[in-house]
Design a protein around this nucleic acid. Structure first.
Lengths: 229, 229
DNA sequence: AAAAGGTGTTTGGTATACAATTTTACCATT
DNA sequence: AATGGTAAAATTGTATACCAAACACCTTTT
């Protein structure tokens, strides 16, 4: 093991060199999620690479990465497009996400540490404070953190990764739904029930409550969609 | 909505030109799944590109694609490696796959057509014929088809995609397990129960049977792993 | 002899150049 | 006016070249 006088600073100094492709992927993901790049928008590799000040190669890599996350559709020899999932596909995503969170709830009850339960509780409390706040995005992000914290508490790395992808794919749909003020009360009530079952270490109840919560979100989003037409 | 006399042929006529990256990804995936490229094997971009007679650019794209499917690990500035998942990670994958197939069973009962049920039945019959056959790979592939047919019958495109990825990531582990002759009887018996519950349109039973089947596979694989040590 | 450090080779990351394909616009024909 | 064809422009797909970081080996030093 190499040791120098600065050895113990290695971790902190670790200027973890992250590739341009990674940076570009994060930028693009954010632009897509917040709607700056709207669904269906075609993306020119050349134009985007110029705008992001990188060459096409890492940009292409970033685009393919987001394609794997279902945020971008890429067809051979055609311009990539920001994903514009059909209502049916969104419903499909909700169903899978519900199953994933249901599993997460079960595993959380089995394996989560007290600290992890504490974290979920803390997030729930924060969310309660934000319920009166007027910023929908802030509330929504904390809502997502509540779910992510449960998934991480499950201790299943593969589940966490897949859940994150589905969360990104569902981001717009869930955010639209979350903007309704009346939805906040529903969210808080259902989160409260979920949290209670986690505290009780009641796996079946937690799984059921999470599934129910997600499927209610699916229904709400579906209603909203039809109202909008 | 646009309509021409040929509208219903659109899907079939698609002369899809596949990119070199796509071809390379398929080649590599197969090489990894059958163990020709063993877990932990480091992959030199230059050497691989020469061997596949393509340039590094499409090869890199193929590698990143397989990385997204968890078949290859890629760390910054290091040689990509064929994934060598820890026992714990494999267990995690099994748990998620069980949840996915459980959902598939439920949805199949709700939405699958009679033809799709017939297809699952036919695969089950062929699997029975193969049970005496000596080729483990052939039996295993048909086993996988049984599960895939159920997933496709669920009519959930996102689920089908995610399930396929998990299947690939679990391929080696499940194949090792499947090689045992005694496992074939277990497989046939449990498939029979699954099929019966699908025919009865009993969603809960189908979901439970599928979960149980997968978790038994997980346990069997775990035992095999410990015996091997 | 062991450890530290330097050096050269290998490797992945990125940019650029070229080839193949698609899209667009325009014109001719009906 | 609508349709079909064609050529130019734009765009993606692929190959190659270059650079900087990482690794392996060897020398140097203690």
């Amino acid at each position: 093991m190499k040791k120098t006088g600065l050895a113990d600073l290695d971790d902190d100094l670790g200027v973890e060199r992250v590739s341009l492709a990674e940076i570009a992927a994060e930028r693009l993901r954010e632009l897509i999620l917040v709607g700056r790049l709207p669904p269906g928008q075609t993306l020119s590799e050349r134009e985007l690479s110029e705008r992001l000040r990188i060459s096409r190669t890492p940009l292409r890599e970033a685009i393919r990465k987001l394609a794997a996350e279902r945020l971008i559709d890429v067809l051979p020899n055609r311009r990539p497009q920001v994903a514009d999932p059909s209502p049916e596909y969104i419903d499909d995503l909700f169903d899978v996400q519900a199953a994933l969170e249901s599993l997460a709830g079960r595993l959380f009850v089995e394996r989560a540490s007290d600290e992890q339960l504490e974290e979920v509780t803390a997030i729930h409390a924060r969310l309660g404070e934000l319920a009166d706040s007027s910023d929908p995005l802030e509330f929504f992000r904390m809502d997502m953190q509540f779910h992510s914290a449960i998934v991480h508490g499950s201790g299943n790395a593969a589940l966490a990764d897949t859940h994150r992808q589905y969360n990104a794919a569902l981001f717009r749909a869930r955010f639209m739904s979350s903007r309704q003020i009346r939805w906040r009360n529903v969210t808080m009530a259902e989160h409260k029930e979920i949290l209670a079952s986690l505290c009780d270490r009641d796996a079946e109840h937690a799984a059921a409550a999470l599934t129910s919560h997600l499927l209610k979100g699916k229904a709400n989003q579906s209603i909203l969609r039809n109202e909008g037409e």
